[in-house]
Amino acid sequence: MKIAEADRLAGNDFLLRAMRNYHCYYVDPAPAQFRPAVMDTTSFLFGSQLADNVYYLGYLNLAAYAIRTSDGLVLVDAGGSEEHGRKILEWMGKAGFKPADLKWIVITHEHFDHFGGAPFLKAETGAKIVAGADAVSGEGEAQKLPASLLPLDLTVKERTTLKVGTTELVLLPTPGHTKGTISVFAPIEVGGVRRMASFWGGKGMRPNVKDLREMVRSLAVFTAESDRLKVDVPLNTHSWGDATISRLINMSLVPDAPNPFVLSKDQSQKNLQILERCTSAYLDAVEAGSITRGIRD
């Protein structure tokens, strides 16, 4: 029923259908056939500008974003390797930024593909590191920030505002994907118009009832904050399934078309509703015992 409700919400809207497939991937009876490897470094879109002050610094699946503020750059995630960090630094130079212009690196959660480039970038630029409080302890070495990033310059234990120049980002604990997952809200500009971007901190679902219940609770908090801040540019740190790549390509082909990353109010609300239905459907399946392992991880 919940998958059917997600289908109904998506309707015939191309973007919402893509997001429905993305959100429901783990529980969909007919999952998407195409899913690039996380560490696939195909980089033909690296450095694409998706808004006046937002740059895509990722590959086909793994994303990082740079937000330009009046006092330098903020990174949302830092790539999955030192090589990725080096590529970000190289892009900065080509784009006219100095190493010292990188002020903050926001790590959405304690998985290596989101912080792998951060130790290098911290050493090369002096950027400060912010992450969730529970990202420090982790669950074994595979889910813990490395010592080279500690102590954190800012630890997120509750809803936190990070001011960089005139830009105020909101950092929100949203555990579920990992204990230390945080989500990010950032005011941006598109065609000179102020918009609000959001980054849902942890996408992947694991067949663990406790974590999935926590993810559903976090989604409610994330949705309430999205409504309060009037989010209309939802972005994802894994970009393979929600048409991020095709939207970036379309922007390069037809640069004077309306920005495809700006959603209507109806689309924004339905996107979050679809995400909730898909996550809840996965929880139902795990509780019923019909999914017992992460066969699509």
Rank of each mutant, 00 (worst) to 15 (best):
D7W: 11
S218T: 14
Y22S: 12
A123R: 08
L172W: 12
N250V: 04
C278W: 04
P207R: 00
S239R: 10
M92D: 10
A147L: 13
A64I: 01
R20L: 09
D284P: 11
Q143I: 04
A281P: 09
V231I: 06
V262R: 09
M196Y: 13
C278I: 11
V209H: 07
N53V: 04
R8F: 06
S183N: 09
V106T: 05
A127F: 01
W200H: 13
M196Q: 14
D113Y: 07
A118P: 03
D297L: 13
P207N: 03
G180P: 02
Y282T: 10
W91G: 04
H23D: 14
D101N: 11
A186L: 05
P31R: 02
H111L: 13
I129Q: 01
S239C: 15
F97Q: 07
T42G: 08
Y65I: 06
V136S: 08
R68F: 05
T69A: 06
L275W: 14
D232S: 01
L172E: 09
Y56F: 14
L212T: 05
Y56M: 11
G11D: 05
W104H: 15
D52N: 00
K144W: 02
A220K: 02
D256H: 12
A64E: 08
N12R: 00
P187G: 03
L283K: 11
G117K: 05
D232I: 05
G79I: 00
L263I: 10
I129F: 00
E139A: 15
S264Y: 02
A37Y: 12
M196W: 13
Q49N: 10
P175D: 04
